[in-house]
């Protein structure tokens, strides 16, 4: 009996670092978030990922589990972000004929849209006296997570603040664009999708795929082009201005 207790004790010390603990928690929170989302009748202002993240944070806070330990355990899952980013090349290729047909508006819209997606927020934060670290964390806020993480590290920002910024940006862009498109009676899936991808990165793209395959393709296109474009101009500009 006492041996069993000893084993239980060592198990309790080991479990938090285990990959399966992190993955079970993440997946369980994800599906619970999806359920909660459906139960709340799919509110546009609160995507399932926000609900799921709150549930996961609550689990981590209640359980004797360190965030750093969790991060290490869940690495197996977050690694998939790499191949998932590569996979975005497939819808991009499938929609190349759209890019060919619309290269002019895309070439004219993308640079100002991507620059303003960073510029407005950094400008407002700078006017309100935010610290340089906060500015560097907010700058890549409209870029898809794997690229944005690389950019913010190069600028000297905080990855976790960036993640929060990405979430708020994704939610606000999705909400804002949905409301604006309705207000303007805008039905063109290409425009809505592109705007969702440029401003709302992966969260906007998920929403665009819900609207339709064309919107999804244009969102992936907008997201990829914004990511690549921002990764190239932002570090240069930062160096120049700062």
């Amino acid at each position: 009996m006492s041996e069993l207790l000893l084993r239980l004790e060592s198990l309790a010390g080991e479990l938090p670092q285990r990959t399966e603990t992190a993955i079970v928690l993440t997946l369980a929170a994800y599906f619970a978030g999806l359920r909660l989302f459906a139960w709340l009748r799919s509110p546009a202002w609160c995507p399932p990922i926000l609900l799921a993240s709150c549930l996961l944070a609550l689990c981590l806070a209640l359980l004797p589990l360190d965030y750093a330990e969790y991060r290490q355990g869940v690495e197996w899952l977050t690694w998939l972000l790499g191949p998932a980013t590569v996979a975005l090349g497939v819808p991009l290729y499938q929609q190349v004929h759209h890019i060919r047909a619309l290269w002019k508006p895309i070439a004219l819209t993308l640079p100002p849209a991507a620059m303003l997606a960073a510029g407005y927020a950094v400008g407002i934060a700078w006017l309100l006296n935010a610290s340089p670290q906060v500015l560097a964390s907010l700058a890549p806020k409209s870029v898809t997570a794997p690229i944005a993480m690389g950019i913010t590290q190069a600028l000297g920002g905080s990855v976790s603040l960036l993640m929060g910024a990405l979430l708020i940006t994704g939610v606000m862009a999705t909400l804002g664009i949905t409301v604006m498109a309705r207000g303007w009676r805008l039905k063109d899936e290409r425009i809505i999708g592109f705007a969702l991808g440029v401003n709302g990165h992966a969260i906007g793209t998920v929403r665009a795929f819900e609207i339709g395959p064309t919107a999804g393709a244009f969102a992936s296109l907008g997201m990829s082009l914004t990511g690549v474009f921002t990764a190239l101009w932002l570090p240069l500009m930062w160096h120049f201005v700062g």
Binding site: A22, T26, L27, A29, Y30, P47, P48, I49, A52, S53, L56, A57, L60, A61, Y67, Y70, R71, V74, L77, T78, L80, L81, A84, A121, V122, I124, A125, L128, N129, A130, S131, V134, L138, K141, A145, M149, S158, V159, S160, L161, M163, G164, A165, L166, L167, I168, T169, M172, A202, I203, T205, V206
Partner: peptide
């Protein structure tokens, strides 16, 4: 994709203290 970025998103709940006092600015800017 949404599932894969979740672990990163959760980080902000545990490092919120680092940016005390700047939250209104951050929210307004975002």
């Amino acid at each position: 994709l949404a599932l894969l970025i979740m672990p990163g998103v959760v980080g902000i709940f545990f490092q919120a203290g680092e940016f005390a006092g700047q939250w209104p600015t951050i929210f307004i800017a975002l």
